[in-house]
Design a protein around this nucleic acid. Structure first.
Length: 407
DNA sequence: ATGGAAGTTGTTGGA
DNA sequence: ATCCAACAACTTCCA
């Protein structure tokens, strides 16, 4: 790295995961060495983990209610900072940096365009997600969702359907918050604008509560060494999962993991969710619950770390703290311990989508199946399967395990 | 300190 | 339709 003579100050946003902490520390050492001022800000959270820890005697609250008590003591979160009225453009930058030659980081068109994925050396992806990035898109989505004030005021997560699509039942703003297209502080203030003088749902299930869940995991994850692993993680239950290590040799478990990832478990609800995830990069929170429970304690008994790795790769909104925190939760390894509350891949979706429309969309082989068998097609008589143009075991897989007889 | 209550959002079967 | 108890590999918190 080299210092450009006109650079006097560098500003950046503080980050809290182990990779970012290490990276920022190295950069800061370099800047100090080069006599460059460093200014950092912590505004992509409502409360910085350090603040919460300090208020709670140096330890992270491990229950949501405990977390709420601490942030109540901290008072209202900070306001978003208004956007700058003016930013230097390309030619200004050239002037400021006093360089005449084309700046290589301006891209092939010298316009700071986002390069195509192929230019970065990746293959053309199999799927094209319907979710598009950017701040303008995020703000439009926020406006649109907030048009229905009753929906916002009465929002209760367990009452939003994981089977809804076009439109989804929740905001789908998580990828934008993750990448900084939408400030969580702006989201919070816009929400407060609607809450003001109105009765509204409350945490943990409310929309406000969802933002606090994010904060909860940030604090817990920041305070916990090896948060993303079982080994060496002091809050994680030590369990003898299958595929506990990435390179463990267990042929059957590896096949099960692939089937889970590829949506070929033979459980339509699970497969539909995983297909939506691979194709679109976003799935509803309760859909995440369903497949995470299925992979770990519910059915396949495979390590939550394997699931978290796949989620991290496939999710547009993958966030270190939220992803690993939720996997700890769903596998009943930390935060949540009522292992006997297992999501059924049959009974659970029936509550939200008795017609099976979600399955029909994301597992098209089953689109003609009668609703009676849509979540357990292996039970359909052969005559029914023929009529639906889908023979189980040929056109769609038989279930890889029996849900009821997991030990 | 120790026992009871609570813990984001389970399922089943019965009244 | 709605509520409730039972199921029964738990852990944390707090009075």
């Amino acid at each position: 790295m080299e210092r450009h003579p006109s650079v006097k100050t560098v500003s950046y946003e503080r980050d809290y995961d182990p990779y970012s902490i290490k990276r920022d520390k190295e950069l800061e050492d370099f800047f100090n060495e080069a006599d460059i001022n460093v200014r950092t800000f912590g505004t992509h959270v409502l409360y910085e983990p350090t603040q919460v820890l300090e208020k709670n005697g140096g330890v992270a609250p491990l229950t949501y209610q405990g977390f709420l008590k601490v942030v109540n003591k901290l008072g209202k979160p900070g306001f978003p900072i208004p956007p700058p009225t003016k930013l230097p453009g390309f030619f200004d930058l050239q002037k400021i940096l006093n360089c005449n030659e084309g700046i290589e980081f301006a891209g092939p068109n010298k316009t700071f365009d986002v390069p195509a994925i192929q230019e970065l050396g990746f293959e053309t992806p199999l799927y094209r997600s319907p979710h598009h990035g950017g701040e303008s898109v995020a703000l439009q989505m926020l406006d649109k969702y907030f048009l229905d004030k009753t929906k916002v005021l009465t929002f209760e997560k367990p009452n939003t359907s994981p089977a809804a699509f076009d439109p989804a039942s929740t905001t789908v703003l998580s990828p934008y918050v993750k990448y900084g297209c939408l400030s969580v502080r702006l989201f919070y203030q816009r929400l407060m604008d609607i809450y003001r003088n109105q009765s509204h749902s409350k945490p943990p299930v409310s929309l406000e509560g969802q933002l606090f869940w994010r904060e909860f995991y940030y604090t817990a994850g920041y305070a916990t060494p090896n948060f993303h692993r079982m080994e060496g993680n002091p809050i994680c239950l030590q369990t003898n999962w299958r595929l506990k290590e990435k390179d463990d040799v267990d042929e059957e478990a590896s096949k099960h993991l692939e089937a889970w990832r590829d949506g070929t478990t033979g459980f339509p609800w699970i497969d539909a969710i995983m297909n939506q995830l691979r194709q679109e990069g976003w799935i509803h929170h309760l859909a995440r619950h369903s497949v995470a429970c299925f992979l770990t304690r519910g059915d396949l008994y495979i390590s939550w770390e394997r699931g978290a790795e796949i989620f991290e790769y496939l999710l547009l909104d993958a966030d270190y703290f939220l992803n690993f925190g939720n996997w700890l939760w769903l596998s009943a390894s930390a935060f949540f311990h009522q292992y006997f509350r297992v999501y059924s891949p049959i009974a659970f979706p029936k509550k939200y989508d008795p017609e099976g429309n979600f399955v029909r969309k994301y597992v098209p082989q089953l689109s003609q199946f009668p609703k009676k068998y849509i979540y357990e097609p292996w039970k359909a008589p052969l005559e029914v399967q023929r009529k639906a143009n889908c023979i189980i075991g040929k056109d769609y897989p038989k279930p890889i395990v029996e849900h009821d007889v997991i030990v």
